[in-house]
């Protein structure tokens, strides 16, 4: 099983938590690693959300606030942004779910994703033949299976490494 599939499975576990309605794993540039979002959201919407969130978090970091978690509380939903070192987890939950409960429920999954991303960074990138992009399709609840491939896991790992170097 690839890191990508493992992360996708972990997101499936997170969405299985009572009160959680969707989750996106993005890299530090807002690129989608995997996502499990409600059927109503188009892939373009999910990508736009991830990019916006990541831009925000990176700018907040620039301010020197060192924010680990940001939670947007809307009337009908809560959007929780969690730092996973090489990217972010964007979790949508019902507003009445307690934040400490959400943290406890998701922390183990968050750590597993961090480990996977850290491991994939060390995986040597395989040469890719032109035009044979195997791609990492955005994982979804099924309705968004025709999404555009983002990158191979090795590409993704390489990009993470670059971002890490840039922000160090």
């Amino acid at each position: 099983m690839t890191e990508q599939h493992e992360i996708d499975e972990i997101l499936g576990d997170i969405v299985g938590i009572e009160g959680v309605t969707g989750v996106i794993a993005s890299d530090n540039r807002g690129g989608i690693i995997a996502a499990r979002m409600p059927a109503m959201y188009e892939p373009e919407t999910i990508e736009a959300v991830a990019k916006r969130v990541v831009d925000s978090l990176l700018n907040i970091r620039e301010y020197g606030s060192g924010a680990d978690d940001v939670i947007f509380h809307f009337e009908n939903i809560r959007v929780v942004i969690k730092n996973i070192r090489k990217g972010f987890l964007i979790i949508m939950s019902m507003p009445d779910m307690s934040v400490p409960l959400l943290n406890i429920s998701t922390n183990a999954f968050r750590k597993r994703i961090i480990r996977l991303l850290t491991f994939s960074r060390k995986t040597p990138a395989k040469p890719k033949s032109p035009g044979t992009e195997t791609g990492v399709a955005m994982a979804t609840n099924g309705n968004l299976s025709e999404t555009t491939p983002v990158a191979t896991v090795a590409d993704h790992a390489a990009s993470l490494h670059l971002v890490t170097n840039q922000t160090a």
Partner: peptide, 25 residues
């Protein structure tokens, strides 16, 4: 503004508040 952008992108009900936590803030 980031919250308002999310509200617009995802078609959510109005933003009430945002909380931010980290080691320094």
């Amino acid at each position: 503004r980031s919250g308002l952008a999310l509200e617009e992108h995802l078609g959510l009900d109005p933003l009430v508040y945002t909380s931010l936590s980290g080691k320094k803030i």
